[in-house]
Amino acid sequence: MVPGTSRWLSVLQGLGQAGTMTLKPPLAGIPAAPVPIPAAVAREAGGEELEAVWINEVGGTSFRIGADTTAERYIKYAPVGTEDTDFAAEAQRLGWAGAHAIVPRVLEVGGDAAGNWLLTAALRGESAVAPGWIPRPAMAARALGSGLRALHEALPVHDCPFESSLSERVKDLERRIERPWNPADWPPGYSLHRIETALELLRNPPVPAVRVVCHGDVCAPNTLLDEQGNFAGHVDLGSLGVADRWADLAVAAWSTEWNYGRGYEELVYAGYGIAPDTASIAYYRLLWDLG
């Protein structure tokens, strides 16, 4: 048991959020209805087949252009005012990571008065939450773990210019709490007292295990699989940076519950080749949920 585990678990149990937290995830997914096409996206498509493939929780949309052609590509679009849309920063991370791992090649970063966008070349494979993989969760979960291990081993931590600072993530949460408190801003089940208790807990992280270059948002939708169910690549690396590997592992395994249901987390750890670290999993899930 790593130092601080007993304290961690006792406090989490007091919060009603023990190591197997099941808070409602952010709303994101494949569009269930037609999506308005921004003018910039339509211009980029230039008459080619255009399809909305993903809507994220903060209002951005991803489109596929030229499906199944040699020029197939994807464009992420965020209207002005949407949070977390520093596509220039994501392009830098993709450019650096692309020298070592399987990630999309950046074609263009742009913006106008209406919004911003990031255009990338398509990778072979499809998302681990594509309709064909939902009925095969065990295979997808293992590939999620093995793909994450491949990413962590491929990206050179000592040469990485990007940091995913734990202290900055906690400070950002502190800044949010300093604003007028609105219960609607927090996940279901929390009260102000619990938020304050959780914040104190987050200021005292478990001892870091192994520092790697983390994906930063390594959930099932951002992992690509080939037709045989093998890992084929990663997308959406806007939060890439050096951090404890459990910052990725805890959320990657948790995402199987959101996308496939319960019972597949252990397969992610098996695919990665690691035993679960209960304290680190609890810490990084709480940080993710509140952050």
Rank of each mutant, 00 (worst) to 15 (best):
P131E: 09
P131Y: 08
P131S: 10
G132P: 00
G132L: 05
G132V: 11
I134E: 01
I134F: 00
P135T: 03
P135C: 04
P135M: 01
R136Q: 14
A138C: 02
M139A: 15
M139K: 12
A140C: 10
A140N: 06
A140I: 09
A141I: 08
A141L: 05
A141K: 02
R142W: 09
R142H: 12
R142S: 12
A143T: 08
L144P: 05
L144Y: 05
L144N: 08
G145D: 02
S146L: 09
S146C: 14
S146K: 09
G147S: 10
R149M: 11
R149F: 11
A150E: 15
L151H: 00
L151F: 14
H152P: 01
H152K: 02
H152C: 02
H152W: 05
H152Y: 07
H152Q: 03
H152V: 06
E153L: 14
E153S: 13
A154L: 09
L155T: 02
P156Q: 05
P156F: 11
V157A: 13
V157G: 03
V157I: 15
H158K: 12
H158S: 14
D159W: 08
D159M: 12
C160D: 01
C160F: 00
C160K: 00
E163G: 01
S164T: 06
S164R: 14
S164A: 15
S164K: 10
S165E: 04
S165H: 04
L166R: 15
S167L: 15
E168W: 14
E168H: 12
E168D: 13
E168T: 10
R169V: 05
